[in-house]
Design a protein around this nucleic acid. Structure first.
Length: 509
RNA sequence: GGCCCCAUAGUCUAGCGGUCAGGACGUUGCCCUCUCAAGGCAGUAACACGGGUUCAAAUCCCGUUGGGGCUACCA
Protein backbone atom coordinates (compact mmCIF):
# COMPACT_ATOMS: atom_id res chain seq x y z
CA UNK A 1 0.00 0.00 0.00
CA UNK A 2 1.28 3.39 -0.98
CA UNK A 3 2.08 5.29 2.18
CA UNK A 4 2.65 8.62 0.52
CA UNK A 5 -1.04 9.25 0.22
CA UNK A 6 -1.91 12.89 0.71
CA UNK A 7 -5.44 14.24 0.73
CA UNK A 8 -6.86 17.61 1.55
CA UNK A 9 -9.97 19.21 2.85
CA UNK A 10 -10.30 22.70 1.40
CA UNK A 11 -13.23 24.69 2.74
CA UNK A 12 -13.69 28.32 1.90
CA UNK A 13 -14.28 30.51 4.93
CA UNK A 14 -17.42 32.16 3.64
CA UNK A 15 -19.72 30.65 6.22
CA UNK A 16 -20.05 27.95 8.85
CA UNK A 17 -18.89 24.47 8.06
CA UNK A 18 -22.06 22.59 7.35
CA UNK A 19 -22.98 18.96 7.61
CA UNK A 20 -22.09 18.20 3.99
CA UNK A 21 -18.70 19.82 4.38
CA UNK A 22 -18.11 17.81 7.50
CA UNK A 23 -18.90 14.66 5.57
CA UNK A 24 -16.34 15.59 2.93
CA UNK A 25 -13.77 16.25 5.65
CA UNK A 26 -14.64 12.91 7.22
CA UNK A 27 -14.22 10.95 3.99
CA UNK A 28 -10.84 12.57 3.46
CA UNK A 29 -9.85 11.77 7.01
CA UNK A 30 -11.02 8.18 6.72
CA UNK A 31 -9.17 7.75 3.46
CA UNK A 32 -5.98 9.19 4.94
CA UNK A 33 -6.27 7.06 8.07
CA UNK A 34 -7.01 3.93 6.12
CA UNK A 35 -4.04 4.41 3.82
CA UNK A 36 -1.66 5.71 6.38
CA UNK A 37 -1.59 9.02 4.59
CA UNK A 38 -1.71 12.66 5.53
CA UNK A 39 -4.65 15.01 5.71
CA UNK A 40 -4.06 18.60 4.80
CA UNK A 41 -6.40 21.39 5.82
CA UNK A 42 -6.35 24.19 3.34
CA UNK A 43 -8.39 27.32 3.70
CA UNK A 44 -9.50 28.36 0.23
CA UNK A 45 -9.78 32.06 0.81
CA UNK A 46 -8.92 33.47 -2.59
CA UNK A 47 -12.19 35.34 -2.58
CA UNK A 48 -11.15 38.06 -0.20
CA UNK A 49 -14.47 39.83 -0.33
CA UNK A 50 -16.43 36.88 0.99
CA UNK A 51 -13.82 35.19 3.15
CA UNK A 52 -13.75 36.02 6.82
CA UNK A 53 -11.25 35.07 9.48
CA UNK A 54 -14.02 34.40 11.96
CA UNK A 55 -15.43 31.73 9.65
CA UNK A 56 -12.00 30.18 9.33
CA UNK A 57 -11.77 30.00 13.11
CA UNK A 58 -15.22 28.50 13.28
CA UNK A 59 -14.41 25.87 10.68
CA UNK A 60 -11.24 24.89 12.50
CA UNK A 61 -12.99 24.67 15.82
CA UNK A 62 -15.74 22.55 14.30
CA UNK A 63 -13.21 20.17 12.81
CA UNK A 64 -11.61 19.91 16.22
CA UNK A 65 -14.95 19.32 17.89
CA UNK A 66 -15.37 16.27 15.72
CA UNK A 67 -11.82 15.13 16.44
CA UNK A 68 -10.76 15.26 12.84
CA UNK A 69 -7.04 15.75 12.90
CA UNK A 70 -5.03 17.23 10.09
CA UNK A 71 -1.29 17.06 9.56
CA UNK A 72 -0.64 20.25 7.67
CA UNK A 73 -2.32 23.60 7.35
CA UNK A 74 -2.30 26.19 4.56
CA UNK A 75 -4.11 29.33 3.61
CA UNK A 76 -4.44 30.21 -0.06
CA UNK A 77 -4.17 33.90 0.68
CA UNK A 78 -0.61 33.24 1.80
CA UNK A 79 0.44 31.33 -1.28
CA UNK A 80 0.19 33.92 -4.01
CA UNK A 81 3.87 33.57 -4.90
CA UNK A 82 3.29 29.95 -5.71
CA UNK A 83 0.37 30.71 -8.02
CA UNK A 84 2.47 33.38 -9.66
CA UNK A 85 5.24 30.88 -10.22
CA UNK A 86 2.93 28.38 -11.87
CA UNK A 87 1.27 31.07 -13.94
CA UNK A 88 4.69 32.02 -15.25
CA UNK A 89 5.19 28.47 -16.43
CA UNK A 90 1.98 28.69 -18.42
CA UNK A 91 2.98 32.07 -19.82
CA UNK A 92 6.29 30.70 -20.95
CA UNK A 93 4.57 27.82 -22.66
CA UNK A 94 2.18 30.23 -24.32
CA UNK A 95 -0.89 28.58 -22.87
CA UNK A 96 -2.44 31.75 -21.53
CA UNK A 97 -3.46 35.10 -22.92
CA UNK A 98 -4.64 38.43 -21.66
CA UNK A 99 -8.31 39.28 -21.73
CA UNK A 100 -9.46 42.87 -21.80
CA UNK A 101 -13.18 42.28 -21.69
CA UNK A 102 -15.08 44.22 -19.12
CA UNK A 103 -17.68 42.81 -16.81
CA UNK A 104 -20.49 44.45 -18.78
CA UNK A 105 -19.25 43.09 -22.06
CA UNK A 106 -19.11 39.58 -20.74
CA UNK A 107 -22.49 39.91 -19.16
CA UNK A 108 -24.00 41.11 -22.39
CA UNK A 109 -22.58 38.25 -24.40
CA UNK A 110 -23.83 35.84 -21.79
CA UNK A 111 -27.33 37.27 -21.96
CA UNK A 112 -27.21 36.97 -25.69
CA UNK A 113 -26.37 33.29 -25.45
CA UNK A 114 -29.19 32.69 -23.02
CA UNK A 115 -31.67 34.47 -25.28
CA UNK A 116 -30.54 32.40 -28.22
CA UNK A 117 -30.80 29.30 -26.02
CA UNK A 118 -27.22 28.52 -26.77
CA UNK A 119 -24.62 27.46 -24.22
CA UNK A 120 -22.54 30.36 -23.02
CA UNK A 121 -18.92 29.94 -23.94
CA UNK A 122 -16.36 32.73 -23.86
CA UNK A 123 -15.84 33.72 -27.48
CA UNK A 124 -12.08 34.13 -27.34
CA UNK A 125 -12.29 37.65 -28.66
CA UNK A 126 -9.14 38.85 -26.91
CA UNK A 127 -7.10 36.03 -28.33
CA UNK A 128 -6.90 37.77 -31.67
CA UNK A 129 -6.14 41.31 -30.60
CA UNK A 130 -3.11 43.01 -32.14
CA UNK A 131 -0.52 44.99 -30.20
CA UNK A 132 -2.05 48.40 -30.68
CA UNK A 133 -5.53 47.24 -29.74
CA UNK A 134 -4.16 45.64 -26.63
CA UNK A 135 -2.40 48.77 -25.48
CA UNK A 136 -5.50 50.80 -26.09
CA UNK A 137 -7.69 48.45 -24.06
CA UNK A 138 -5.05 48.14 -21.37
CA UNK A 139 -5.21 51.87 -20.84
CA UNK A 140 -8.95 51.80 -20.58
CA UNK A 141 -8.78 49.10 -17.94
CA UNK A 142 -6.05 50.98 -16.10
CA UNK A 143 -8.34 54.00 -15.91
CA UNK A 144 -10.77 51.82 -13.99
CA UNK A 145 -7.93 50.60 -11.78
CA UNK A 146 -7.89 47.19 -13.41
CA UNK A 147 -5.47 44.98 -15.28
CA UNK A 148 -6.20 42.44 -17.99
CA UNK A 149 -7.39 39.09 -16.71
CA UNK A 150 -5.58 35.94 -17.73
CA UNK A 151 -7.31 33.13 -19.55
CA UNK A 152 -6.23 29.63 -20.45
CA UNK A 153 -5.92 29.08 -24.18
CA UNK A 154 -7.82 25.88 -24.83
CA UNK A 155 -7.14 25.92 -28.56
CA UNK A 156 -3.43 25.85 -27.92
CA UNK A 157 -3.84 22.92 -25.59
CA UNK A 158 -5.45 21.06 -28.45
CA UNK A 159 -7.61 18.63 -26.53
CA UNK A 160 -10.97 17.60 -27.88
CA UNK A 161 -12.20 15.94 -24.77
CA UNK A 162 -11.11 15.25 -21.26
CA UNK A 163 -11.85 12.02 -19.55
CA UNK A 164 -10.94 10.81 -16.16
CA UNK A 165 -11.53 7.82 -13.98
CA UNK A 166 -13.44 8.94 -10.94
CA UNK A 167 -13.03 6.67 -7.94
CA UNK A 168 -16.72 6.74 -7.20
CA UNK A 169 -18.33 7.46 -10.57
CA UNK A 170 -16.04 5.60 -12.91
CA UNK A 171 -15.27 7.08 -16.31
CA UNK A 172 -16.47 10.65 -16.83
CA UNK A 173 -16.09 12.47 -20.15
CA UNK A 174 -16.32 16.16 -20.95
CA UNK A 175 -16.23 18.00 -24.25
CA UNK A 176 -13.50 20.64 -24.11
CA UNK A 177 -15.20 22.90 -26.63
CA UNK A 178 -17.98 23.55 -24.17
CA UNK A 179 -15.60 24.63 -21.45
CA UNK A 180 -14.37 27.89 -22.93
CA UNK A 181 -11.19 29.76 -22.11
CA UNK A 182 -11.68 30.25 -18.40
CA UNK A 183 -10.08 32.88 -16.22
CA UNK A 184 -7.03 32.05 -14.14
CA UNK A 185 -6.33 35.46 -12.75
CA UNK A 186 -8.86 38.22 -12.42
CA UNK A 187 -8.72 41.85 -13.47
CA UNK A 188 -8.29 42.79 -9.84
CA UNK A 189 -5.30 40.52 -9.50
CA UNK A 190 -6.81 37.56 -7.71
CA UNK A 191 -6.33 33.96 -8.66
CA UNK A 192 -9.51 32.06 -9.34
CA UNK A 193 -10.56 28.92 -7.57
CA UNK A 194 -10.03 26.63 -10.55
CA UNK A 195 -6.44 27.72 -10.88
CA UNK A 196 -5.41 28.16 -7.27
CA UNK A 197 -7.02 24.95 -6.20
CA UNK A 198 -5.31 22.63 -8.65
CA UNK A 199 -1.99 24.47 -8.39
CA UNK A 200 -2.09 23.90 -4.64
CA UNK A 201 -3.03 20.30 -5.13
CA UNK A 202 -0.05 19.84 -7.41
CA UNK A 203 2.32 21.88 -5.30
CA UNK A 204 1.31 20.20 -2.05
CA UNK A 205 1.65 16.78 -3.59
CA UNK A 206 -2.00 15.85 -3.18
CA UNK A 207 -2.53 12.33 -4.49
CA UNK A 208 -6.30 12.07 -4.19
CA UNK A 209 -8.87 14.80 -4.38
CA UNK A 210 -11.94 13.75 -2.45
CA UNK A 211 -14.64 16.37 -2.65
CA UNK A 212 -18.33 16.89 -3.22
CA UNK A 213 -19.99 16.01 -6.48
CA UNK A 214 -20.75 19.67 -7.07
CA UNK A 215 -17.12 19.99 -8.15
CA UNK A 216 -17.33 17.38 -10.84
CA UNK A 217 -17.75 19.96 -13.59
CA UNK A 218 -14.66 21.83 -12.42
CA UNK A 219 -12.59 18.72 -12.84
CA UNK A 220 -11.97 18.86 -16.60
CA UNK A 221 -10.66 22.42 -16.25
CA UNK A 222 -8.30 21.36 -13.54
CA UNK A 223 -7.12 18.34 -15.46
CA UNK A 224 -6.44 20.57 -18.43
CA UNK A 225 -4.35 22.79 -16.19
CA UNK A 226 -2.34 19.78 -15.06
CA UNK A 227 -1.67 18.98 -18.70
CA UNK A 228 -0.74 22.55 -19.53
CA UNK A 229 1.60 22.60 -16.58
CA UNK A 230 3.01 19.28 -17.63
CA UNK A 231 2.51 17.72 -14.23
CA UNK A 232 0.74 14.58 -13.19
CA UNK A 233 -2.80 14.81 -11.97
CA UNK A 234 -4.21 13.62 -8.67
CA UNK A 235 -6.92 10.97 -8.62
CA UNK A 236 -10.46 12.23 -8.16
CA UNK A 237 -13.29 10.97 -6.02
CA UNK A 238 -16.51 12.94 -6.17
CA UNK A 239 -18.69 11.88 -3.34
CA UNK A 240 -22.44 12.26 -3.47
CA UNK A 241 -24.10 15.15 -1.76
CA UNK A 242 -26.47 15.30 1.17
CA UNK A 243 -30.03 16.40 0.54
CA UNK A 244 -32.83 17.62 2.74
CA UNK A 245 -36.24 15.99 3.04
CA UNK A 246 -37.42 18.10 0.12
CA UNK A 247 -34.81 16.49 -2.10
CA UNK A 248 -32.93 19.73 -2.49
CA UNK A 249 -29.31 20.17 -1.60
CA UNK A 250 -28.81 20.89 2.07
CA UNK A 251 -27.96 24.52 2.40
CA UNK A 252 -27.18 26.97 5.11
CA UNK A 253 -30.87 27.65 5.29
CA UNK A 254 -31.61 24.18 6.62
CA UNK A 255 -31.48 24.23 10.37
CA UNK A 256 -29.98 20.77 10.45
CA UNK A 257 -27.23 21.70 8.02
CA UNK A 258 -25.64 23.80 10.69
CA UNK A 259 -23.33 21.85 12.97
CA UNK A 260 -24.38 24.02 15.89
CA UNK A 261 -27.67 22.16 15.81
CA UNK A 262 -26.00 18.87 16.68
CA UNK A 263 -24.07 20.31 19.57
CA UNK A 264 -27.18 21.91 20.94
CA UNK A 265 -29.27 18.78 20.59
CA UNK A 266 -26.64 16.71 22.35
CA UNK A 267 -25.38 14.43 19.62
CA UNK A 268 -22.00 12.89 20.26
CA UNK A 269 -19.36 13.81 17.68
CA UNK A 270 -18.55 10.14 17.17
CA UNK A 271 -22.19 9.40 16.48
CA UNK A 272 -22.51 12.19 13.95
CA UNK A 273 -19.40 10.96 12.19
CA UNK A 274 -20.61 7.39 12.31
CA UNK A 275 -23.91 8.43 10.80
CA UNK A 276 -22.25 10.52 8.12
CA UNK A 277 -19.94 7.65 7.26
CA UNK A 278 -22.75 5.15 6.72
CA UNK A 279 -25.03 7.34 4.67
CA UNK A 280 -24.42 7.12 0.99
CA UNK A 281 -21.75 4.62 1.74
CA UNK A 282 -21.25 0.97 2.54
CA UNK A 283 -18.63 -0.71 4.59
CA UNK A 284 -18.34 -4.46 4.77
CA UNK A 285 -21.15 -6.55 3.45
CA UNK A 286 -22.07 -10.01 4.67
CA UNK A 287 -20.56 -9.29 8.02
CA UNK A 288 -23.00 -9.37 10.88
CA UNK A 289 -20.81 -7.11 12.86
CA UNK A 290 -21.86 -4.21 10.69
CA UNK A 291 -25.47 -5.11 10.14
CA UNK A 292 -26.54 -2.36 12.48
CA UNK A 293 -23.86 -0.06 11.08
CA UNK A 294 -22.51 1.03 14.43
CA UNK A 295 -18.77 1.21 14.91
CA UNK A 296 -17.01 1.17 18.23
CA UNK A 297 -14.20 3.51 17.35
CA UNK A 298 -12.97 5.80 14.65
CA UNK A 299 -10.07 3.49 13.92
CA UNK A 300 -12.44 0.67 13.29
CA UNK A 301 -14.43 2.85 10.92
CA UNK A 302 -11.26 3.83 9.07
CA UNK A 303 -10.11 0.25 8.87
CA UNK A 304 -13.21 -0.88 7.04
CA UNK A 305 -13.58 2.24 4.93
CA UNK A 306 -13.34 1.92 1.18
CA UNK A 307 -13.89 4.97 -0.98
CA UNK A 308 -14.77 2.74 -3.90
CA UNK A 309 -17.82 1.50 -2.04
CA UNK A 310 -19.19 5.00 -1.72
CA UNK A 311 -22.52 5.35 -3.50
CA UNK A 312 -22.62 7.64 -6.49
CA UNK A 313 -26.24 8.57 -5.87
CA UNK A 314 -27.22 11.33 -3.49
CA UNK A 315 -28.56 10.66 -0.02
CA UNK A 316 -31.31 12.31 1.95
CA UNK A 317 -30.24 13.25 5.41
CA UNK A 318 -32.20 11.55 8.18
CA UNK A 319 -32.05 12.93 11.67
CA UNK A 320 -34.10 9.97 12.86
CA UNK A 321 -31.35 7.60 11.91
CA UNK A 322 -28.76 9.90 13.41
CA UNK A 323 -30.68 9.73 16.64
CA UNK A 324 -30.62 5.98 16.51
CA UNK A 325 -26.87 5.98 15.93
CA UNK A 326 -26.42 8.43 18.76
CA UNK A 327 -28.44 6.24 21.08
CA UNK A 328 -26.23 3.28 20.24
CA UNK A 329 -23.12 5.30 20.85
CA UNK A 330 -24.43 6.45 24.20
CA UNK A 331 -25.07 2.85 25.16
CA UNK A 332 -21.69 1.58 24.11
CA UNK A 333 -19.55 4.44 25.29
CA UNK A 334 -17.66 3.88 28.49
CA UNK A 335 -19.24 6.01 31.23
CA UNK A 336 -16.06 7.84 32.14
CA UNK A 337 -15.50 8.72 28.51
CA UNK A 338 -19.07 9.90 28.28
CA UNK A 339 -18.73 12.15 31.31
CA UNK A 340 -15.53 13.51 29.86
CA UNK A 341 -17.26 14.14 26.53
CA UNK A 342 -20.20 15.82 28.20
CA UNK A 343 -17.87 18.16 30.03
CA UNK A 344 -15.55 18.85 27.14
CA UNK A 345 -17.83 18.92 24.14
CA UNK A 346 -21.11 20.36 25.24
CA UNK A 347 -22.15 23.73 26.46
CA UNK A 348 -24.33 22.59 29.30
CA UNK A 349 -25.81 26.00 29.81
CA UNK A 350 -27.57 25.43 26.51
CA UNK A 351 -29.72 22.97 28.41
CA UNK A 352 -29.67 24.12 32.00
CA UNK A 353 -28.71 27.41 33.44
CA UNK A 354 -26.44 26.78 36.41
CA UNK A 355 -27.46 29.94 38.15
CA UNK A 356 -31.05 28.73 38.05
CA UNK A 357 -30.13 25.49 39.74
CA UNK A 358 -28.09 27.32 42.29
CA UNK A 359 -30.76 29.79 43.20
CA UNK A 360 -33.35 27.09 43.64
CA UNK A 361 -31.20 24.46 45.21
CA UNK A 362 -28.23 25.73 47.05
CA UNK A 363 -30.14 27.26 49.91
CA UNK A 364 -31.84 23.97 50.60
CA UNK A 365 -28.82 21.86 49.81
CA UNK A 366 -28.17 18.93 52.04
CA UNK A 367 -24.49 19.69 52.40
CA UNK A 368 -24.75 23.34 51.72
CA UNK A 369 -21.50 24.29 53.36
CA UNK A 370 -19.56 22.41 50.67
CA UNK A 371 -21.64 23.73 47.86
CA UNK A 372 -21.51 27.35 48.70
CA UNK A 373 -17.77 27.42 48.94
CA UNK A 374 -17.23 25.46 45.76
CA UNK A 375 -17.01 26.98 42.32
CA UNK A 376 -19.68 25.50 40.14
CA UNK A 377 -19.37 25.74 36.39
CA UNK A 378 -22.01 23.48 35.02
CA UNK A 379 -24.56 20.84 35.77
CA UNK A 380 -22.09 17.99 35.84
CA UNK A 381 -19.90 19.92 38.19
CA UNK A 382 -22.82 20.58 40.43
CA UNK A 383 -24.01 16.99 40.31
CA UNK A 384 -20.54 15.83 41.22
CA UNK A 385 -20.56 18.04 44.29
CA UNK A 386 -23.98 16.75 45.23
CA UNK A 387 -23.43 13.06 44.71
CA UNK A 388 -19.73 12.51 44.63
CA UNK A 389 -17.78 11.23 41.66
CA UNK A 390 -18.56 7.57 42.08
CA UNK A 391 -22.27 8.03 42.60
CA UNK A 392 -22.56 10.41 39.68
CA UNK A 393 -20.92 7.79 37.54
CA UNK A 394 -23.64 5.34 38.50
CA UNK A 395 -26.30 7.91 37.64
CA UNK A 396 -24.81 8.71 34.24
CA UNK A 397 -24.29 5.03 33.60
CA UNK A 398 -27.98 4.56 34.26
CA UNK A 399 -29.15 7.55 32.23
CA UNK A 400 -27.02 6.82 29.18
CA UNK A 401 -28.97 3.62 28.63
CA UNK A 402 -32.30 5.35 28.96
CA UNK A 403 -31.95 8.37 26.74
CA UNK A 404 -30.93 9.14 23.21
CA UNK A 405 -29.03 12.40 23.46
CA UNK A 406 -26.76 14.20 25.85
CA UNK A 407 -29.39 16.89 26.09
CA UNK A 408 -31.98 14.42 27.31
CA UNK A 409 -29.54 13.03 29.84
CA UNK A 410 -28.72 16.45 31.21
CA UNK A 411 -32.35 17.47 31.37
CA UNK A 412 -33.21 14.32 33.26
CA UNK A 413 -30.22 14.69 35.55
CA UNK A 414 -31.43 18.11 36.48
CA UNK A 415 -35.08 17.24 36.67
CA UNK A 416 -34.87 14.22 38.91
CA UNK A 417 -31.45 14.14 40.49
CA UNK A 418 -30.71 17.78 41.15
CA UNK A 419 -34.06 19.42 41.61
CA UNK A 420 -34.65 19.80 45.31
CA UNK A 421 -38.13 21.16 45.25
CA UNK A 422 -41.07 18.81 45.66
CA UNK A 423 -43.27 17.53 42.90
CA UNK A 424 -46.97 17.21 43.39
CA UNK A 425 -48.03 13.73 44.38
CA UNK A 426 -51.24 12.12 43.21
CA UNK A 427 -52.50 10.61 46.40
CA UNK A 428 -51.86 11.90 49.86
CA UNK A 429 -52.55 8.58 51.59
CA UNK A 430 -50.17 6.64 49.43
CA UNK A 431 -47.50 9.26 49.75
CA UNK A 432 -47.75 9.14 53.51
CA UNK A 433 -47.65 5.37 53.50
CA UNK A 434 -44.58 5.39 51.27
CA UNK A 435 -42.95 7.92 53.54
CA UNK A 436 -43.62 5.90 56.68
CA UNK A 437 -42.72 2.54 55.20
CA UNK A 438 -39.54 3.57 53.48
CA UNK A 439 -38.43 5.42 56.54
CA UNK A 440 -39.30 2.50 58.82
CA UNK A 441 -38.19 -0.49 56.85
CA UNK A 442 -34.79 0.79 56.14
CA UNK A 443 -34.28 1.82 59.70
CA UNK A 444 -31.05 3.60 60.30
CA UNK A 445 -28.95 1.46 58.02
CA UNK A 446 -26.50 3.25 55.80
CA UNK A 447 -27.84 3.93 52.33
CA UNK A 448 -25.63 1.57 50.41
CA UNK A 449 -26.61 -1.55 52.29
CA UNK A 450 -30.15 -0.71 53.23
CA UNK A 451 -31.75 1.12 50.39
CA UNK A 452 -32.06 -1.14 47.40
CA UNK A 453 -34.57 -2.12 44.76
CA UNK A 454 -35.79 -5.26 46.47
CA UNK A 455 -36.42 -3.43 49.66
CA UNK A 456 -38.44 -0.72 48.00
CA UNK A 457 -40.36 -3.27 46.01
CA UNK A 458 -41.19 -5.18 49.18
CA UNK A 459 -42.30 -2.01 50.88
CA UNK A 460 -44.62 -1.24 48.01
CA UNK A 461 -46.09 -4.72 48.14
CA UNK A 462 -46.58 -4.46 51.85
CA UNK A 463 -48.37 -1.15 51.49
CA UNK A 464 -50.57 -2.63 48.83
CA UNK A 465 -51.56 -5.65 50.92
CA UNK A 466 -52.07 -3.94 54.21
CA UNK A 467 -53.91 -0.94 52.90
CA UNK A 468 -55.73 -2.40 49.91
CA UNK A 469 -54.02 -0.09 47.50
CA UNK A 470 -53.43 -0.85 43.87
CA UNK A 471 -49.77 -1.65 43.18
CA UNK A 472 -49.81 0.43 40.04
CA UNK A 473 -51.15 3.40 41.91
CA UNK A 474 -48.37 3.19 44.42
CA UNK A 475 -45.71 3.03 41.72
CA UNK A 476 -47.33 5.83 39.84
CA UNK A 477 -47.48 7.95 42.93
CA UNK A 478 -43.88 7.26 43.82
CA UNK A 479 -42.84 8.17 40.29
CA UNK A 480 -44.82 11.36 40.41
CA UNK A 481 -43.35 12.38 43.73
CA UNK A 482 -39.78 11.68 42.65
CA UNK A 483 -39.82 12.85 39.06
CA UNK A 484 -42.93 14.92 38.54
CA UNK A 485 -43.83 12.80 35.55
CA UNK A 486 -46.01 9.82 34.81
CA UNK A 487 -43.45 7.92 32.84
CA UNK A 488 -39.74 7.44 32.56
CA UNK A 489 -37.08 4.89 33.43
CA UNK A 490 -37.43 2.36 36.25
CA UNK A 491 -38.59 4.27 39.30
CA UNK A 492 -37.00 1.65 41.54
CA UNK A 493 -33.61 2.32 40.03
CA UNK A 494 -34.15 6.04 40.22
CA UNK A 495 -35.07 5.83 43.90
CA UNK A 496 -31.98 3.79 44.71
CA UNK A 497 -29.74 6.20 42.84
CA UNK A 498 -31.35 9.17 44.55
CA UNK A 499 -30.70 7.59 47.90
CA UNK A 500 -32.86 7.20 50.92
CA UNK A 501 -32.46 10.70 52.26
CA UNK A 502 -33.55 12.40 49.06
CA UNK A 503 -36.42 10.00 48.51
CA UNK A 504 -37.75 10.49 52.01
CA UNK A 505 -37.43 14.21 51.69
CA UNK A 506 -39.45 14.22 48.46
CA UNK A 507 -42.13 12.10 50.08
CA UNK A 508 -42.48 14.40 53.04
CA UNK A 509 -45.84 16.11 52.98
C1' G B 1 -31.30 26.16 -22.93
C1' G B 2 -26.34 23.41 -22.59
C1' C B 3 -23.13 19.96 -19.97
C1' C B 4 -22.55 16.34 -16.20
C1' C B 5 -24.25 13.02 -12.33
C1' C B 6 -28.02 9.82 -10.41
C1' A B 7 -32.48 6.16 -10.20
C1' U B 8 -34.02 -1.00 -5.34
C1' A B 9 -39.63 0.13 0.22
C1' G B 10 -41.07 6.67 3.48
C1' U B 11 -35.30 6.92 4.39
C1' C B 12 -30.04 4.69 4.13
C1' U B 13 -28.51 0.50 1.56
C1' A B 14 -27.05 -5.20 -0.19
C1' G B 15 -27.27 -7.10 -5.00
C1' C B 16 -22.47 -7.39 -10.49
C1' G B 17 -27.13 -12.57 -15.42
C1' G B 18 -30.62 -17.59 -12.38
C1' U B 19 -32.01 -14.80 -4.72
C1' C B 20 -38.69 -16.55 -1.65
C1' A B 21 -34.91 -9.26 -3.95
C1' G B 22 -31.14 -9.39 1.97
C1' G B 23 -30.06 -5.80 6.09
C1' A B 24 -30.69 -1.07 8.91
C1' C B 25 -33.81 3.36 10.34
C1' G B 26 -38.97 4.34 10.59
C1' U B 27 -43.63 2.24 11.19
C1' U B 28 -47.40 -1.73 13.10
C1' G B 29 -48.49 -5.80 16.51
C1' C B 30 -47.00 -9.03 20.45
C1' C B 31 -43.73 -10.37 24.68
C1' C B 32 -41.21 -8.12 28.86
C1' U B 33 -42.83 -4.38 32.55
C1' C B 34 -44.65 0.25 37.82
C1' U B 35 -44.86 3.72 33.25
C1' C B 36 -41.88 5.43 28.87
C1' A B 37 -37.96 3.75 26.45
C1' A B 38 -34.47 -0.14 25.63
C1' G B 39 -34.37 -5.38 24.48
C1' G B 40 -36.67 -9.92 22.18
C1' C B 41 -40.12 -11.77 18.46
C1' A B 42 -43.29 -11.05 14.34
C1' G B 43 -45.42 -7.99 10.43
C1' U B 44 -45.33 -3.80 6.76
C1' A B 45 -43.22 -1.81 2.40
C1' A B 46 -39.01 -1.47 -3.20
C1' C B 47 -36.33 -3.02 -8.41
C1' A B 48 -39.42 4.58 -12.23
C1' C B 49 -41.23 3.38 -17.38
C1' G B 50 -40.53 1.38 -22.42
C1' G B 51 -37.66 -1.23 -25.72
C1' G B 52 -33.75 -4.52 -26.77
C1' U B 53 -29.51 -8.54 -25.71
C1' U B 54 -30.19 -13.50 -23.44
C1' C B 55 -32.82 -19.89 -22.30
C1' A B 56 -32.86 -16.28 -18.15
C1' A B 57 -32.34 -9.33 -16.38
C1' A B 58 -32.97 -5.32 -10.47
C1' U B 59 -28.33 -6.67 -12.68
C1' C B 60 -25.84 -5.58 -19.61
C1' C B 61 -27.28 -1.90 -23.88
C1' C B 62 -30.53 2.01 -25.87
C1' G B 63 -34.41 5.41 -25.18
C1' U B 64 -38.15 7.95 -22.06
C1' U B 65 -39.46 10.02 -17.59
C1' G B 66 -38.08 11.86 -13.00
C1' G B 67 -34.56 14.02 -9.49
C1' G B 68 -30.05 16.64 -8.62
C1' G B 69 -25.59 19.45 -9.59
C1' C B 70 -22.85 22.81 -12.60
C1' U B 71 -23.37 26.48 -16.19
C1' A B 72 -18.97 33.50 -13.03
C1' C B 73 -13.30 37.61 -13.36
C1' C B 74 -17.72 32.46 -6.17
C1' A B 75 -15.49 28.68 -4.00
Amino acid sequence: MNNNIRVRFAPSPTGHLHIGGLRTALFNYLFAKKNNGKLILRIDDTDITRSKKEYEDLIISDIKWFDIKYDEFYRQSERKDIYEKYLKILEEKGYVYECFCTEEELLRSKELSINLKKPYIYNGRCLHLNGAEKENLRKKLADAGLVPSIRLNMLKLGCEQVEFEDMVHGKVVFNVKLLGDFVLKTSDNRFTYNFASIVDDIDLGITHIIRGEDHISNTPRQILLCRALGTGCPMFAHISLLYGKDGKLMSKRDFNANLEHYKKEGYLPQAVLNYLAITGNTFIVNDERFSDEIFTSFDEMAHYFDIKRTKSSGAIFSEEKLKFVNEKWLQQLNTDDLIYAIKEKFILTDYINVSDINSINISSSINNTDIESAEIFDVIDYAEKEYGKERLRCIIDFLKNEYKTVKEIILELDNVFLYKGKYNYFDKDITELLFENLKETTGNKPEASGFNEILIKNAIQKISKENKKNIKDIYENLRMALTGKTNGPSILKIAVLLGKERVISKLTI
